[in-house]
Design a protein around this nucleic acid. Structure first.
Lengths: 354, 354
DNA sequence: CTGTTAGCGCCTTCAC
DNA sequence: GTGAAGGCGCTAACAG
């Protein structure tokens, strides 16, 4: 019923081994035979059996890209860029040559699902795995991840981190591309301080996430350097990386801390919620309250006024991660690269009144 | 080096077949033996060899979800919902039982890549494929798709459309969930007409896409029913589904058609660009010009003023598609279901001046 | 309920 | 440059 490599071999009047060789192209084959084989492939409309091939070769062409939230463009942009580098240009023939199958897996931020996906990918003998976004800092999960990644690496799976800090004491990870969240956050807060703000509220992300912690640390570094500290706790509210969190937290900050003149959000989406809360409180942006985000997602420039934020080169980082995953690019020295974050000062921040 | 099913069998003092049976759970096994096997699995830290399993069983646990643009929440929301239904709840053991591997593939809107991904999925003997979003209407591509899908279906792969109109004359597709783009667009334009608008610009999506055509048709139906027609062409501009397109097209409409009092955009992202253009033209929303979008993505409510749009139940549709893909839900009668679109009238539309 | 026996379709040494 | 043969690890009939 389904056509196999042997059928192609018969039609091309060669041995199965030869067909395999031209298909994989990793071996010298006479041009005439190659043409004959290729013709037979087309005529028979043959499609390689992936499982059989992977079984025999002990490796597959699957590359997994793990993301925390597929509905969030922050991850979508990175994943899309990575995928475009992995899939190959695609020759348009639809024949699908030696292409890798780049697929994205949505963990939803759940540590269990993260581990499960890794197991599933391990089961498929994936060629590579790209892990995007911040990591959970829970020690037991970190340990479980380290173990799992070590096993994957042992089995020959290449592992790349994108926008995630390197794993300490682990050589399982081929390369780690980490965003300079701390530095970006520091510069953002410095910008507000320079404008004259002294009472700055901070809507942080969920606890136990590296991204949350690094951004918060950068913020506090700047505050401390300006001699402002002591009320960090009361000016910080934690919540998920969504609009709702920004809205609720900001309402709370505005209610209990009358003097807040600026709100820094964990990311742009949270900042949008913060903006809505400021307005619903009857205040203007930036005249009464300044608001800032993080990431510089495409919609940030469309906020009214345009959002001051920190730009992360998501597409570039994702593309690089994709190239690293398929070995098109060599790992940075030490396997670790820090990616700069750039302050984008726009209309949503200004000097406080008075 | 790597532990196999035989190793587990030896340790549990049973035959390989028995191990296979408890792992797949599709066969009666005595509780005591099952426990013994499971223990051996844990002790040996055994991970099933997916390719071998797929080869023997002639089917894999891979489910592909194709999207046009992974950085667009429109697709991210559907894909995430689908994935959550397919992956199973995950028992948190990290053992990854009979779970399916739901993966999303980004075609970038390219027909070649769409076909290539389908081939790759066919090669993997995927259990199911979910195709999301509008289809390209190019006849040759449609024909190629029909052929490819028929082959996939023949090989036992279940095929589900989500947010895509059914394929004519094809029984390859298990189920088609189509959004009522035409009806939604009609109601949106009727809303503007009721407000008193007569000169309505339309920023359409790319040509040859079902989504673009259906929304445009709905719009024109409403215009025609109101006795307004003749200048459709000059009031319509086509472009990609992005912010830039909305911006450029709207500037153009505003420049050449001074009397336009409302702009309908192909989707919310395009609408955001339209809003920016209206403002840069020195006009206010909605006092001078009304703007409307489509899809009701999460950020739409945060636009200033909040965007009037048409809500599509993306998460619900995606979840349903996921369930259909794994056979958790039976296909609707005729294999086709139309999903309603709901008008969300908000602040960005109002009666025209005068 | 459990063991035995054949392959699934391909890759990969080996020979020629 | 090409063919022959063995085995990758698992599942699916069959027996028992």
């Amino acid at each position: 019923m389904t056509v196999t490599l042997a059928d192609v071999a018969a039609r091309a009047r060669v041995s199965p081994a030869t067909v395999s060789r031209v298909l994989n192209g990793n071996y010298p084959v006479a041009t005439s035979t190659r043409d004959r084989v290729l013709r037979a492939v087309d005529e028979l409309d043959y499609v390689l059996n992936g499982p059989a091939s992977s079984l025999a070769a002990a490796t597959s062409d699957l590359v997994g890209i793990l993301v925390n939230d597929i509905a969030d463009p922050f991850f979508g942009i990175m994943a899309g860029a990575a995928q475009s580098q992995i899939g190959g240009p695609g020759d348009g023939s639809g024949r699908a040559g030696g292409e890798k199958l780049a697929v994205v897996c949505n963990t939803g931020g759940s540590p269990e699902r993260e581990l499960t996906y890794l197991t599933l990918l391990q089961r498929q003998r994936a060629a590579a795995v790209v892990l995007t976004g911040g990591a959970l800092e829970d020690p037991s999960h970190q340990a479980a991840m380290a173990v799992k990644l070590a096993k994957l690496a042992d089995a020959g799976t290449r592992i790349v981190f994108c926008g995630r800090p390197p794993l300490p004491d682990s050589d399982a990870v081929t390369a780690s591309l980490a965003f300079d969240n701390r530095g970006g956050a520091r510069r953002l807060t410095e910008h507000l301080l320079e404008l004259g703000h002294r009472h700055i509220g901070y809507v942080a992300g969920p606890l136990e996430r590296t991204t949350t912690r690094h951004r918060l640390e950068g913020h506090r570094e700047a505050m401390k350097a300006a001699g402002l500290h002591g009320d960090e706790e009361s000016l910080t509210v934690h919540g998920p990386y969504d609009r709702r969190s920004g809205y609720d937290a900001t309402r709370e900050l505005l209610a209990r801390e009358g003097e807040v003149t600026a709100v820094v959000a964990a990311n742009d989406t949270v900042a949008l919620g913060a903006c809505a809360a400021v307005r619903d409180h009857g205040l203007r942006i930036p005249e009464d309250v300044s608001v800032a985000g993080f990431d510089d997602l495409p919609f940030s420039v469309d906020a009214m006024p345009a959002l001051t934020t920190v730009r992360l080169p998501l597409a570039e980082a994702g593309a690089r991660a994709g190239r690293l995953a398929v070995g098109k690019e060599k790992a940075p020295a030490g396997g670790i690269a820090t990616i700069d974050a750039e302050l984008m000062a726009r209309g949503s921040t200004a000097a406080p009144r008075g």
